[in-house]
């Protein structure tokens, strides 16, 4: 800390010297203008500089503790009993192991699952490397791709092939674009419904059952106007699993 104190003092002295010059140079205007009171000479009058430095150092330390330690502790003390599931990351347990978090998207590639959006987090849905592509629309790499990176054109072709759609069939844009976090847990309801035929074939189920399942999992905008309709992919896939294997214990929140 002595380093900080010295730096603090030196910089403050420098700054005050500048201010003294600055306000000194303007004093003449005040007097020539008349009417305004002539300010008492000297910038530091009411409080002494040295004492201010002591206060500065003390307040940095004390108030940092207040904001950085006391506040989180108080928050934790209140929140831990009130919202234990949320505070520990909204994790889902099945047979004692964590299968994921309701809030964090994860990779699904098998034909029998609903697929999430493409992801730019690490090598895909890496929960320790959130982020987007940051590619501008004007950057050819976004549409056309690059070695090791599938462009939107290739993603659209793959999506249409996987789901048995015509080459010019319209598809919802969220199915072929990467989210900002790379961990988007949701897809649009339209995206989910386009995947139903493929999953029904892979699982030997009626498509109508799957459509009903999707409809049950659509989250409407909060309070009717906040955000967009969406389907959480992990919860949908967990429900899909239970549809065929009802003996599996339902995943439950971890406390």
């Amino acid at each position: 800390m002595p380093l900080a104190v010295i730096a603090n003092g030196a910089l403050t002295r420098l700054f005050i010297a500048c201010l003294a010059v600055a306000s000194g140079s303007t004093r003449a205007d005040d007097e020539s203008r008349g009417g305004a009171p002539a300010p008492t000479p000297g910038v530091i009058r009411e409080v002494q500089l040295k004492k201010q430095l002591r206060t500065a150092v003390l307040s940095v330390l004390v108030l940092s503790l207040l904001g950085g330690a006391v506040f989180p502790l108080v928050l934790f003390t209140i929140a831990a009993p009130l919202f234990p599931v949320q505070a520990s990351g909204s994790l889902l347990l099945q047979r004692g192991t964590v299968v994921g978090s309701t809030l964090i998207g994860q990779e699904f590639t098998g034909m029998e699952w609903f697929h999430p959006r493409p992801s730019a987090a690490g090598s895909g849905y890496d929960g320790t490397a959130s982020g987007g592509t940051n590619l501008a629309p004007s950057n050819p790499k976004l549409a056309e791709g690059a070695p090791g990176f599938a462009g939107i054109r290739a993603l659209a072709t793959e999506y249409r092939q996987n789901n048995g759609l015509a080459p010019d069939a319209p598809i919802p844009i969220d199915a072929v674009t990467r989210s900002g976090s790379g961990l988007d847990p949701d897809i649009s309801p339209e995206n989910a419904l386009l995947q139903v035929t493929r999953i029904a074939r892979a699982r030997g189920l009626e498509a109508s059952i799957l459509r009903r399942l999707v409809a049950q999992h659509v989250m409407r905008p909060q309070f009717g106007f906040l955000g967009e309709p969406r389907v959480p992919v992990l919860e949908l896939n967990l429900a899909l699993e239970r549809l065929q294997h009802p003996e599996t214990r339902a995943a439950h929140p971890a406390r």
Partner: peptide, 16 residues
Amino acid sequence: LHLVGGNMEGKEVRFG
């Protein structure tokens, strides 16, 4: 590419 919707690259579905 016959995509439906706005520019969703880098955006989250829940926010649109």
